[in-house]
Nucleic acid binder design. Structure first.
Lengths: 114, 114
DNA sequence: TAGATAATTAGGACATTGCCTAAATACCTA
DNA sequence: TAGGTATTTAGGCAATGTCCTAATTATCTA
C-alpha cells in the first residue's frame, strides 16, 4: 500500500495523472498529441471551447507530467510525454491485478523511449 | 478518435472508469479488494471516514463496473472486477502510444479471467 | 417481537472544477 | 514603434464532488 500509484505525494504523483485523465477533453488532447505535436491554437481549434479553457486543460496535463511545452516564437508547441503516463497506468494495473509480467516489461521498455 | 476510451457514452464507459480512478480513496479500495473480497464495513474500517462516505465511493466504483457486490445476510461483500479496468487502461494506453503489442494481448488474456 | 448490527439513503455544508469574458503578456512584422 | 497574432492570467459563476450527521432499510438473534 506504500505505492507510488496510491500515494498522492509521491514522485510523479499518480494522483495528478489520474486526475488529469478524468477529463474526456484532456484524454482527447493526449490522443491528438499522440499523432503529432501541436500548438496551443491547433489544439484549441479541435474543441468547441474557448482558448483559455483549453489552456487550462493543457496546464493540468503539464502539471501531471503528461505533456511538455516548448515556446518557439509566438507559438507554444505541445508534445506528449508517454513515460509517466504508461508507468502510472501500468503501476496501478500491476497493483490491482498482480498477474501480468509482460505488462511490466512493456512499461519499462517504454520508459526508455520517453 | 472514435474509441471506447474517448467516447464517454460507449459500452463500459471509459469516462466512468477514469472518473472512478481519479480518487485516491477509490484506488485504495480497489487495491484492498485486489487482495481479497471484503464487506462494506471491513472496507470502511480501513479509512478514516464515515461509513456513508465509503458507501458512496463504493457506488461510484460499482457504477464504473470496477467492483461487484453480493448481499449475504446482513453483510454486503464487495469483489474487484478487473476486466473492465484492465481493458480500459490498456485501451487508452494503446491509443495514446500505439506501440506495444504484448500489452494488448495481456489485456485480452485478463478479460477472460474476469 | 424487540433490540442490535450492517449498510444505504437523504439532505446539507463546503471545496473544487470547468467554463466563460476581459485583460495582460509575448512576439512578430510593417 | 504601432498594430496584429498567439497564448496565458485574472476573476466570476454555475455545476459537481466529497464529506458529514440523521434517518431508514434489512437482517440477525435473544
Amino acid at each position: 500500500m506504500n505505492d507510488d500509484t496510491l500515494n498522492p505525494d509521491a514522485g510523479g504523483s499518480a494522483q495528478r495523472v489520474f486526475n488529469a485523465l478524468s477529463s474526456l477533453h484532456r484524454r482527447k488532447i493526449l490522443a491528438y498529441l499522440s499523432a503529432s505535436s501541436l500548438t496551443a491554437g491547433e489544439i484549441a481549434e479541435r474543441f468547441n471551447m474557448s482558448k483559455p479553457s483549453v489552456s487550462q486543460h493543457l496546464t493540468v496535463l503539464e502539471n501531471a507530467g503528461l505533456i511538455a511545452k516548448e515556446k518557439r516564437g509566438q507559438f507554444v508547441h505541445y508534445t506528449i510525454v508517454t513515460n509517466n503516463l504508461i508507468n502510472t497506468l501500468n503501476g496501478f494495473a500491476q497493483e490491482v491485478c498482480p498477474v501480468s509480467r509482460p505488462l511490466k516489461r512493456e512499461s519499462e521498455a517504454k520508459a526508455k523511449n520517453g
